[in-house]
Amino acid sequence: MTVRNAILGLLAQQPRHGYELRAAFEALVGGADMWDVKPAQIYTTLARLEEAGLVSRDSVEQDGGPEKLVYSLTPAGHDELAGWFRAGVATEHQRDEFFVKLMVSLYSGEADPYQVIRAQRNRLYQDLHDLTARRNGVDGRRELAQIFLLDKSIMHLEADLRWLDLLEARLDDIRRQPLPQPQVRPRGRPRKS
């Protein structure tokens, strides 16, 4: 949905060709390193948007070259874009591999959960170190997207580290309690008594 809505916004700015859209998107997010969008994704998305009546397509003749397809935003597309700006965006924090790893260590007894937390903390500190060094080297006037994203990542890392501290502090309590066991129901119809 992100790429789709960004395309609507970029077309609201001005009508564009497909490859021009891709370049504009990459500039917006701070470079292809940040978010590498494939041409196929741009064209499939444009086709769907056209089908939904949110963008329109025109052929434009070029001097001595083949015709080019130029896309522009329809009034319905404008409404869609306005709706996107009005609404908040949900963030995904549930599916966390580290969290699952910690729970597996608690259930299986195959690893010391304290050690699992420490390994994760070491990893996050290394990431924080890398991003902080990078943040210090970024030119705040020219690389705005990078600054925004680096700040976001740094702040997320801080929160994750605080969360690890909390987990570690609570682990003693948690380990004294029985772990919730899965409810396994017999398959098939219940037997008649």
């Binding site: 470079g31 390193d33 940040m34 978010w35 963030t91 995904e92 420490r118 903390r121 070491n122 500190y125 290394q126 990431d127 170190h129 890398d130 991003l131 060094a133 990078r134 080297g137 994203l149 680096l150 976001k152 990542s153 997320h156 890392l157 994750d160």
Partner: peptide
């Protein structure tokens, strides 16, 4: 002392790796 972390200096040629980390952390 329960743990120690040695932080490796960031390799400036490794920007892509950092970008990947940022994406992984961000969303």
């Amino acid at each position: 002392i329960v743990d120690q972390t040695i932080l490796e200096p960031r390799d400036s040629h490794n920007e892509a790796v950092v970008a990947e980390k940022m994406m992984a952390i961000g969303d």
